[in-house]
Amino acid sequence: MEERLRCLLIAGLGGDEKSYLAFLGQLGAYLRGYFVRRLTGFPGDVEDLLQETLLAVHNKRHTYDTSIPLTAWVHAIAKYKFVDFLRAHGRQAALTDTLDEESEVFASKQTEALEASIDVQDLLESLPNRYRLPILHVKLQGLSVAEAAALTGMSESAVKVGVHRGLKALMARVGGES
């Protein structure tokens, strides 16, 4: 895995979109297994943590040094995000394990129902601009990330992070209001 992923990442760092897409895809599949093994207590959080980690890999890709084995780099980032996750959720999740699972089932049903009824615009208005504008332009108006970046004056990276974090914040709000 090391050699193949390494080549893809290095090509990606050079600006090769196809290689970078393949790199993230294969890395995602690998990391999903990594987190599934470690998050046995909370399977519902695997995708969340995986996305956090992929976002971190993307945002910090300039710290990859070709003299470091790729697996060491990836594992260090994944472990950091994993520990971060445990710090944030550990205590609370340990206390309310079963409840959490149940409420998650409820939350997803209620979310579906609410999605239809709540006015997206109202929800969007409640977000800060760094989240609102990327979602508005990329997800609702269908512009490309580059176009949204040019329109808002944000960097492309900031637009991507904004879409991801903004959608997460929206979901949290919908869940919170129910």
Binding site: L21, G28, A146, H164
Partner: peptide, 23 residues
């Protein structure tokens, strides 16, 4: 957002990184 969507979004239009910049 689905993880696959995130990956596509992150990779789309990715720019070359100058790795000497951090140094």
């Amino acid at each position: 957002m689905k993880t696959d969507e995130l990956i596509v979004m992150l990779a789309t239009g990715v720019s070359a990184v100058d790795r000497n910049e951090t140094r």
